[in-house]
Structures are given as C-alpha cells and as structure tokens.
Write a protein that binds this DNA or RNA. Structure first.
Ligand SMILES: [Mn+2]
Ligand SMILES: [Mn+2]
Ligand SMILES: [Zn+2]
Ligand SMILES: [Zn+2]
Lengths: 142, 142
DNA sequence: ACCTAGATGAGAACGATTCTAAAGTACGAC
DNA sequence: GTCGTACTTTAGAATCGTTCTCATCTAGGT
C-alpha cells in the first residue's frame, strides 16, 4: 500500500508533461543510489536516448527541482548534484574524492544573527561537513 | 600593542614572497568590509595596477587561502568569495541579491553519521543559511 | 484528427576558473 | 652591491559547467 514511486505518475501529479526523456531522467534519479550530476544522467541515458541533448537534462532537472521532486546540491567545486532525497538533510563531503554522504542533524541549529542582518528571513539551511571519507582514509599514505 | 595587520608582515610571516600585487591584494581584503570576489579585487586594483592579470588575483587568493590568511567561501551560484575573517563562522545568503552576512552558531552542531559513512573524519563544516535579507524584504512587492 | 503551448536538440555563447609559456622580479648567497 | 635562480607575473588560450537560441517536434487538450 505504500506510495509507488512511479516516474510517470510523479510527473503528472507535479503538473509536468510526460515525455520519454523526462520519465527516463526521473526514473534514473529514483533508482540511482547517490547524488548524480547532469553528466552522470546524460551519459547513463546515452544508450537509450542517443540523441538526447545535455540541455534537456539541464532543463529537466531544473523543473524537477522547481516542483520539489529533486533537490539541487551545490557543494564545493564542480558540477551540481541532484538528490532524490528531498527531506531536509545535510551532507558529508570528502575533500579527497568528492564523495557525498547524507546525514541528519540531531537537533536544529541555533544561530545568533548579527545586527546588520537583523530581520533576515530564514528559508532553509544546509550544512556541508568536509573531511575524509572512510575509503580515502584507508588508501592514505600517511 | 595589538597585532598590526600589516600586509607585508603577514606575507613574510606566511613565508610568501612580497610582491606589490600580493601586498595590494591582501591589503584590499584587510580593508574590505565583506566577502570580495576575484573580480571585486581585480577591478578595484585596476587603477593602481593597470597591467595586473586576473590570473595573478586567482593565484594570490589561492596562496593566501593555503597559508590561512583568507578563507574561500563558495556559496550557491557564481564566483567564490574571499573572507579575511578566518575564524570558524557561517553565512546567511540572500537568495534575492546574493548578499552575504556572517553569523556564529550558539553551539556546535551534533550530527548522526549514517553507517555507510562510518569512520568519516570531519575536518570542518560550514552552514549556509538561505533566505531574504532585510534590504530585499523591504523592497518586496508582496 | 488538429492545434498549440510547451519540449527537444544542436550548437553557440557565457562566466568562472585554470593552464601555458614567455618575460620579469624577489631575495638569499656570495 | 651583484648574481643566479626559483618563484611570480602576464596575456591569452583552454577548460568546465551551465545557459541561451532557435528551429523542429510532440504531448495532450479540444
Ligand atoms: Mn543527500
Ligand atoms: Mn564571513
Ligand atoms: Zn573520499
Ligand atoms: Zn538581499
């Protein structure tokens, strides 16, 4: 009885037109275990959509973000990553290999806003924890 | 008796060669109230160094970061910003105008690391709070 | 079946950053 | 003070991720 993660239905519910490319991109993200870049998506779908443009991937992930089906994560260097996990959560970033891991805060942050930002209206926040992932730690020389 | 923020001395102490460009860039950041981009620095020093290359600014801020004299802040879209405030602190980012404000956490975060990231070695972290700054709130239509 | 707002595809354009290679300079050694 | 050399600067090309343009195509309502 649990909500089926059907790409077509999700698109329809979001009020987006269902195209083969959109369906494939959303399905890819639903199946993908991790935080895919546009290029990850693009290359993975080359076989099935040899003529799909990289613009289409950009357009699609942007719209999926706008309707809240995915979340864009821009950490450190390089390309944005797209996260099918849209719950509020945060990320560990490996400074060696760029790997990303989800994590959750045990309690929400409490911040002291400086006078010059008095009245700042908080929408949301994201914590980026940098460090060395277990895999890179193992391979370390030192 | 307080530590003089002399650009030349800071460079020497950091073991960096003192060049006019470096001195000017570091001095600019010391005087600048905020979070300057490479282009901010570059354009502001055009008068004094008409032939300075943008590469020099990139090279210099990278080295200043490496020796810990400045901190590179990469929030959201657009160009990196460079922060002369190297104490651990975090940022409010205006999603309308891009303005950046410092803030401090009242207490350090406590995170629950998922099993697949077991053993992740934390180096540091940065909290990016998105929202609407007081100025943009005032100008708002709604 | 038809119409049209919206989507796609190819490639150009863009902004930020890095790279390259040649010419210039800081600074330690003498 | 002069010299040598390792480091720095410069201009421009190159790269990377992303956005834009516009002609063609199509999903989905009528
Ligand atoms: Mn995530
Ligand atoms: Mn700051
Ligand atoms: Zn790693
Ligand atoms: Zn603002």
């Amino acid at each position: 009885m649990q909500a089926q993660k059907d790409a077509v239905q999700l698109l329809k519910n979001a009020g987006l037109r269902v195209t083969p490319q959109r369906e494939a991109i959303l399905q890819f993200l639903l199946d993908y275990d991790g935080h895919a870049t546009v290029d990850d998506i693009y290359t993975s779908l080359q076989d099935r959509f040899p003529s799909m443009s990289v613009s289409t991937v950009y357009n699609t992930v942007k719209q999926l973000s706008q309707v809240g089906l995915v979340k864009e994560i821009g950490v450190g260097e390089g390309a944005s990553r797209f996260d099918i996990n849209v719950e509020p959560h945060h990320h560990l970033v490996c400074t060696r290999c760029g790997a990303l891991f989800d994590f959750y805060l045990e309690e929400p942050i409490r911040l002291s806003v400086p006078p010059e930002a008095e009245g700042f209206e908080v929408e949301d926040y994201h914590v980026e924890v940098r460090g060395v992932c277990p895999r890179c730690k193992k391979q370390q020389v030192s």
